[in-house]
Amino acid sequence: MSNALSTQDLVPGDHGTDEPPRASSWLKYTAMKAGGALISLIMVVLLGFFAFRILPGDPVRSLADGRRVSVEQMDILREQLGLNDPLLAQFWRYLTELFQGQLGYSYTYNEPVVNLIATRIGPTVLLTGTAAIISVVLGLWLGQRAAWRRGSLFDKTQTGLALVFWSVPTFWLGLLLLLLFGGGLQWFPTGGLVTAGTTETGLPLIWDVIRHMTLPVITMVAVVYAQYLMVMRASLLEEMTSDYLMTARAKGLREDEVRTKHAVPNALLPTVTLIFLTLGGLVGGAVTVETVFSWPGLGYLTFQALSAPDFPLLQGTFVVFSSIVILMNFFADLLYRVLDPRLRAA
């Protein structure tokens, strides 16, 4: 389907503007990738509705769990939540709302899902964004250093350390840091985004946020930076035997310049794709960290939605998380093409 669309789109462009064939192939490539992303999104939307209906548990009973709730009250709730309607009617409502940019009404929070996600996506982006930047920079930097001096003590300790952190359960590491630096040494607050009930603004507020962010960011970075380190190391190692490095050295360039100007840019190619692929996953990984550090983000919201089960909220967070992953993959595809001239020519 996406193929047919893209060729039709391309035909007038090719003749009308007389562009060189390279541009049209670029357009075709983009359209193909966009089509693929679109199909994935549609699948997500469908899956998001039906997959969660398999979850055990009646949302109304979960809400009423352990409480004095009469049968009449439960019926009222079921009616209000639209759970009495046939599944297909509920699906139709979900679809029509989705096209209007609505994601339904959360059972648990009595609020539109869109609002819930909007108030919580900021903290999640702040947390995962910071952690992503730090772990990418740290991973790539250590990775190329390690590769350049492979077999050295630096290489061995850095890869070893990274892999140890990589294999540590996030929940455990988070709690450990919390016990050590929160309750034990009392260097950092034990949870949240800001001090509760704070009236600070401006710099003191930023400072407050930084103090609250430190432990969760360290936890996230520690657990994920190894993958960037390892990929960077591996791809740089592949480049290191290349002839062009010999040429560069023959030109009399310093070893540092050979590495940073010639070897690293080529080694970055597979790494960039990986970075974008993992960025989406990183947001998903926030669930654990957010739960340990009481971070008011999307991850914890998802966790709560699962236990109800709060179908609209689950669908909403699922669609958002999946869209992020799909978008990131799409960007990775595009970026790869921009970065790699060989693909551009093809």
């Binding site: 919390l178 034990t190 949870g191 949240g192 509760a196 739960t291 340990v292 550090f293 009481s294 914890y300």
Partner: peptide
């Protein structure tokens, strides 16, 4: 807001 008991104990 505290999301897990162990964190609240530390708090």
């Amino acid at each position: 807001p505290y999301r897990n008991g162990d964190a609240a104990v530390q708090a």
